[in-house]
Design a protein around this nucleic acid. Structure first.
Lengths: 219, 219
DNA sequence: TGTTGGATCTCGAGC
DNA sequence: GCTCGAGGTCCAACA
């Protein structure tokens, strides 16, 4: 990886046309040939860039980065403040913990955490507009649809509402009520859910995992 | 901006849980406090990051980056290969040219490019499900709704279809027919549009711009 | 191989 | 402040 800090101007012509007027920026050239132009702010997105595979040709203070699709990034260097290269090697990459999926499995295996005598009908219960995370029956045999999120926000409540509207038109399972389950539920989402007669349940993921591991059997 | 190249491990706990096993990476600390962890490949997206506003606390080879929402990025430095800081200053920012908005303005100023004697009713004509890009009347006074995209794909046709369904329920303007206008229209989108009785029109942006500049008056 | 939907989306406009 | 739509969206699962 090559790191260059320089006063530069940039022109991009490709899927759109754009330019960057003269300023000091970080130019990052990765081992795969990709080039990133970063300012000292904003988010993780560069001001401008060229994705691999691409070719960088450098001559007389001008970098010309092109790819097969004919896109072109032209960087004119007016003053170079810093220029270093570094061997980084391969990266093992990001490892994600799939919380929502795992939470769904944990809860489907322990429907009794929702209430005494509750049972699982099925996970990913299909409807015309998509699968409901969990379909349960309570101790009276009444159907309950559960929407599971890691962080409960308004759109999750909306989603569950749509499922409930649809499922309550099906005489085979109607009436179906709803539970919005998450590790954390935003106040706005809770307010909306309660207003719509949807129960909110907050679960501690680590505690559920311990139940799953057989360390706790308190329910 | 501070640039650190180091052998490091990273743990992120926030909107999801993720980790990066030990490897050499670039750590970029921007003036606004944001931190980016880049590998020597991949796309312009960092492997891991924390967006501003956030706070970086450094002690004994461990960086702890936190924000108000309680998200945490923890970077453990095992070996530092490079560590420099640079004054970049404010950035004038990216200037885009040739966006959908400009195309909309150009077409709204030249409704006659759709047909002889056509007039503009209004740009961003409001409907219950959102604004239609252009509402025109043809030489007979019949209403025409225009959806403008840079690249015409299926979802654009779907969007226009929804607008047309809604607008045709309004006796004040019904019947309304549709035109799907873009710089380029995908075959699938064209097929769907034609099937629904929607006319497709492909515009050359540069030619329209020249009309706008007064260099061409051929319509 | 195209297509679809999610994203620690980001970004900007409109309200 | 937020909500909604677009993005050089990117990205991966899936048909």
């Amino acid at each position: 990886m090559r790191l260059v800090v320089a006063r530069c101007t940039v022109v991009y012509a490709g899927r759109l046309d754009a330019r960057l007027d003269e300023a000091i920026r970080l130019l990052m050239v990765k081992a795969d040939g990709s080039v990133l132009v970063h300012a000292d702010g904003g988010s993780y997105k560069p001001l401008n860039w060229m994705s691999p595979p691409c070719v960088l040709v450098e001559r007389e203070g001008v970098w010309e980065v092109t790819n097969k699709a004919g896109e072109k990034l032209e960087i004119t260097l007016h003053e170079v403040m810093h220029d270093t290269a570094h061997e980084l090697g391969e990266d093992p990459g990001l490892i994600k913990d799939g919380v929502e999926a795992h939470l769904q499995v944990l809860l489907s295996e322990r429907p009794q955490v929702f209430g005494e005598g509750w049972t699982l009908v099925r996970r990913e219960h299909p409807t015309a507009i998509g699968p409901v995370d969990l379909l349960l029956r309570d101790h009276n045999g009444a159907y309950v649809a559960v929407e599971i999120k890691r962080r409960g926000e308004i759109d999750g409540v909306e989603q569950l509402t749509r499922y409930l509207d649809l499922m309550n038109r099906d005489p085979a399972i109607s009436p179906v009520r709803g539970i919005f389950a998450a590790q954390e539920i935003k106040p706005q989402a809770k307010t909306l859910a309660v207003d719509r007669g949807i129960e909110c349940k907050v679960f501690d993921y680590d505690a559920l995992r311990e139940i799953d591991d057989g360390k706790l059997r308190l329910f």
